[in-house]
Amino acid sequence: MKKENRLLTIDGETLMSQPLTPLNFVVDTLLSQGLHILAGSPKVGKSWLAVTVAKGEAVWGMGVKQGTTLYLRLEDSTLRIQNRLFEITEDAPANVHFSTNSDTLGKGLEEQLCAFLAEHPDTVLVIIDTL
């Protein structure tokens, strides 16, 4: 028997009558909590974003929710990450974390991320470069 493949919809009247929770932003009006794909060439600002959010500094004039950040730089070495940090800051905070090695999706990465989040419940940003 074929499973019915229908659109799940909500009518306007019902939607207007529901109290909904506002979005929680990591970077005000730009980057809300949740899953996003941020694509960019090398040195376009992914490391800078991770460090800036960890420090709680404004991003392009927008406020941030300061917290722990995790950046999986899966095609880099520790030396390359260190060199990049020296280029973008004089004082990388202890709450920005980097890793050059992880399991893959469906083969342990989810568990690794859950363990990190359990150890660092104030995490506000996780960047994965490259799956």
Rank of each mutant, 00 (worst) to 15 (best):
N101T: 14
L38D: 02
D103V: 00
A94H: 07
L131N: 07
A118W: 05
T14S: 11
V27F: 01
R84C: 01
D76V: 02
V126F: 10
I127M: 04
E13C: 06
Q33N: 05
Q82C: 07
Y71K: 10
R6K: 12
G56K: 11
A39E: 07
T68I: 12
L117N: 10
M62W: 02
I88P: 07
W48D: 06
G40S: 09
L31T: 02
S99T: 13
T14N: 09
W48G: 01
Q18S: 04
V53N: 00
A115T: 15
A58E: 06
R6Q: 12
A39P: 00
L74M: 09
L49A: 02
L131A: 08
L38F: 05
Q33L: 03
Q112P: 06
L125C: 01
F116R: 12
E4M: 08
N95R: 13
D91C: 07
L70D: 06
L20H: 14
S102E: 04
L113H: 14
L30E: 10
E57C: 08
T52F: 04
R80P: 00
T100P: 02
G40D: 02
T52D: 03
E13M: 11
L35W: 03
R73N: 14
P19C: 04
L79P: 01
A50N: 02
F25R: 03
T104F: 09
F25A: 09
